[in-house]
Amino acid sequence: MLIPALPSSSKQHHDNGGGLPRWLQVLLTEKFYNACIVHEEAKKNEKNVYCLDCCITLCPHCLAPHRSHRLLQIRRYVYHDVIRLDDAAKLIDCTSVQSYTTNSAKVVFIKERAQTRNFRGNSGNSCSTCDRTLQDPYQFCSLSCKINYLIGSRGSLSGYLYECNYLPFNETGFDDGQLTTDSVLEPAGSVWTSSGSGGCVGGVDCKTTLACTATTEIVRKKRSSGSASRPTAQVCRPVHDILVGLPNRRKGTPQRAPLY
């Protein structure tokens, strides 16, 4: 991680040079969700709140002396730290950083995630710093990657950091920050619906879904009628083939009842 050296003590909170302000330096290098030493006997003592004014991490039991400070809740998904996009956008320009939607809120990753192989391919979009695969039109997979790119290409973050003197902390919505595995992160914009018959959700092809559903229904009917000697595999087929294979449910020519 190409993070510049810490500024001197005379520039604890702001640095007019090419380095990072103290609060951002600590945010990008601090390890969150460690147990609080002061409240090690208390429950839910993970340090998942960051005080921008004191540049320290806090557990929920440490909040009282910092209620008037700018507090940022850190959330975690699969061992990676994320923050809400709304909060991050008050502090730094998040343009071109890929966001994800979880629990009805957009989040962004704070740090670059380790990779075991090169993700760059011959086609497609990838992070300008770490080559991680991205959706168009994003350029960075995390705040750290964008900051490293700006420092390397422009030499400073001038014009990309915002003055935020007030960052409200919603204690009523405060939680442990753990995004469970059933809260799947989905890239922003990948979930969409259409008013027509071809609408999709989460990138799933609705035609394929219809074909699978119809195939399953036919197999179920065959099993119930006993015409199949063995279970039939549920294989997806094109919609046209499925519709052709469906039984014709139209009634025959109506017959008059005999007259007596």
Rank of each mutant, 00 (worst) to 15 (best):
Y166D: 13
H69M: 07
A214D: 09
R249W: 09
P238S: 15
N170D: 15
L20K: 01
L27P: 07
Q178I: 14
G189W: 03
G18F: 08
I218W: 04
T180L: 08
V191K: 04
N103E: 15
C55A: 00
R22Q: 04
F174R: 03
V184T: 13
F109A: 01
S153L: 07
K44Q: 04
R67G: 01
C200P: 00
G177Y: 00
T213R: 11
A35W: 02
P60S: 06
N122H: 04
I147H: 03
G226L: 08
S153Y: 04
G189H: 02
R120K: 15
G202K: 05
P187D: 07
C130T: 04
V26Q: 00
Y149S: 06
K44L: 04
L27D: 06
N34I: 10
T193L: 14
C55R: 05
Y77T: 10
L246Q: 12
A188N: 11
T232M: 08
H69P: 03
S99D: 06
C130F: 03
V244Y: 05
C59R: 05
S68A: 13
N103Q: 15
L2F: 09
Y260A: 14
G155Y: 06
L161R: 03
S225E: 09
T209K: 01
Y100E: 00
C141T: 08
E40D: 13
R250H: 14
H13A: 06
G199L: 04
C236P: 02
I74N: 01
Y50F: 15
P60H: 02
R117P: 05
G121Q: 07
Y160W: 14
P231K: 10
L52F: 04
I37Q: 07
R117V: 08
L243Q: 10
V204C: 02
F140S: 03
P238K: 03
G198E: 13
K111A: 08
D182E: 12
